[in-house]
């Protein structure tokens, strides 16, 4: 039976009437129109749908919307906007850490979770934090550089 869920997304409260089996990914993209969160598999394999729930990266395709009721959810739309970008977004642009851009929102949020916990991560810690996100374009090197650059900038 559908039920009403209250979700805190990017600082705004949304009330959505939804069946309990609806995933957070479906709800974000289809009910709230937040299409910045991508899907690459809907099986928890690619990391493209990574969002932050109370600061922790989760795969929105594996979470039910009802499970995250009341938590603070951050998607790429809430990370920064044109003219007021997050340092990670700036760094991704500057070092060329994106090509097709499809995996980029997921990487940005995994990286944000890392830097929020650990403002000066080692390269190995960056690798660990990003190892659940797949990218087929860049070869990852510039993504890692971008995270390092953003970490330096934020300090």
């Amino acid at each position: 039976m559908p039920r009403l869920v209250r979700l805190h997304v990017n600082g705004q409260v949304h009330e959505v009437f939804t069946p309990p089996h609806r995933t957070l990914l479906e709800l974000l993209r289809e009910d709230l129109g937040l299409t910045g969160t991508k899907h690459g598999c809907e099986l928890g394999e690619c990391g493209a749908c990574t969002v932050l729930v109370d600061g922790r990266p989760i795969l929105a395709c594996l979470a039910l919307a009802v499970e995250v009721e009341g938590a603070e959810i951050l998607t790429v739309e809430g990370l920064g906007r044109p003219g007021n970008l997050h340092p990670l977004q700036e760094a991704f642009m500057e070092v060329g850490a994106l090509q097709c851009g499809y995996c980029t929102p997921g990487f940005l949020l995994s990286a944000k979770a890392l830097l929020d916990q650990n403002p000066a991560p080692s390269r190995q810690e960056i690798h660990e934090a990003l190892s659940g996100n797949l990218c087929r374009c860049t070869g990852y090197l510039r993504i890692v550089q971008a995270v390092e650059r953003a970490a330096v900038k934020a300090r």
Partner: peptide, 22 residues
């Protein structure tokens, strides 16, 4: 080495890929 022209749209999740269309 300028950033790609679509970089800002891509890092802010504002590019509309085919499945984003409704």
């Amino acid at each position: 080495p300028y950033p790609r022209v679509d970089a800002e749209a891509k890092v802010t999740g504002r590019v509309r890929y085919a499945d984003d269309l409704v």
